[in-house]
Design a protein around this nucleic acid. Structure first.
Lengths: 222, 222
DNA sequence: ACTATGCTCGTACGCTGTACGATAGTCAAG
DNA sequence: CTTGACTATCGTACAGCGTACGAGCATAGT
């Protein structure tokens, strides 16, 4: 028994260790750089040893997604529903920005893991307790998820991380591709964005608060 | 000259033919089923012949995405901005539902193709002409894209297509996984959804109209 | 007739996921 | 102490992947 635990926490393998290392590897090298051989190498094991802990690479990917969900904060219970939703949405954006490969994986993975389910339950509970009728709560839940995942998807496909990088790329890469007579409005937008500075966190809050405010009148204020 | 055209439209290859066939293959077999050898087979050619038309599989994937963008309706110019945005959003959802692999590809592809750019220009133009200030137009554009792509992403990860399929799966697969004492709210939601019937098109319009209405006061009504 | 150019594709290399079977260590029953 | 079962590890092998390389061919220009 003690041996078991010691082995699991030391050099020995375990499903958890395999999955967590896979997440680290995907963070570092992207999902294309994640192969069973490389993962095994990072764990100091042979490639086929992994198959004692995961049935296939597909199952590994599912488990990785669930690890990501574990990292997302649940909506706190002690505040109003808007603050609670904002907290969990902001946390989700941060987590998905940390693990950009996760968002691309979701399209093909169809069954939610345990952490995902716990998360959904907590969000639904928060909305119901705030006074949303059952069906309206599912709409709101769906809409907020759409926003969070959609934002993460768009953010992941941006080739820059900071406002400065954006300004540089706009001048060097984007604008040269946009002849002003063919794309007058995009030129105008790009110029305005460079001047104003682009902050993804602000952009996220803008849309999120707009949606939260629009949902407010749809609950039956108890 | 005539020969050239004839060859291109008959058995001969061309970049367009390669990319379009790749889209068809991905629709049929999923993006994992799309390999250069299989694609070449579908075109009656050798695998390496494809590389005269695309520099790499990456470039092929980029071109496939742009074909998808070509299928999306541009916002019509002769109506109010909300109707125009609704038209293009509904079209985008339909197209992305037809090509579910596209949404998962967007995460890793960072530079927009020509059709994508034309689309963005048209949407920005519509918003600017409706009276949105420059920066507000970029916010609105971004928010609407987030909604469309986020919805498509969620829809692609649903393991059912119709309300009936949903009802069947809810009874057979989802509910057995959700012990009522651990997931009371999800049970309640699932039951309500089964009773009410689930229609993705309606769900899409719900969130879309909510966002459009919330954006309305942010434009300077000229 | 000769050369150049554009297109096609066979072969080969280093990768992938994983099926199969061999190996060794642990432990309970005889 | 021996035996057999069970768990964990991994070497080997196979089919399939993207694609570098270069050979073969048809056509166009000189």
């Amino acid at each position: 028994m003690r041996k078991q635990r010691q082995v699991a926490s030391d050099a020995g393998l375990s499903k958890k260790r395999v999955v967590v290392e896979a997440v680290r590897l995907a963070d570092r090298e992207g999902v294309d750089g994640l192969s069973m051989r490389r993962l095994a190498g990072a764990l100091g094991a042979g490639a086929m040893s992994l198959y004692h802990y995961v049935a296939s690479k597909e199952e590994l990917l599912d488990a990785m997604i669930d690890v990501v969900f574990e990292e997302i904060e649940l909506p706190p219970e002690e505040t109003d529903w808007q603050s609670a939703m904002r907290r969990r949405a902001v946390s989700a954006r941060q987590v998905l920005a940390r693990h950009p490969w996760a968002i691309g994986l979701m399209e093909s993975r169809t069954s939610p893991g345990p952490a995902h389910l716990r998360h959904r339950e907590a969000v639904t509970a928060c909305l119901r307790r705030a006074g949303f009728p059952v069906l309206m709560a599912t709409h709101a839940n769906w809409l907020l998820d759409v926003y969070v995942y959609g934002f993460a998807l768009q953010e992941a496909s941006l080739p820059f991380d900071t406002a400065d990088e954006f300004a540089d790329m706009a001048e060097d890469v984007f604008l040269p591709q946009l002849p002003p007579d063919e794309f007058p409005y995009l030129n105008e937008s790009a110029a305005a964005l460079v001047a104003a500075g682009y902050d993804p966190a602000e952009e996220f809050i803008f849309g999120l608060d707009l949606i939260l405010a629009a949902l407010e009148p749809l609950r039956a204020s108890a």
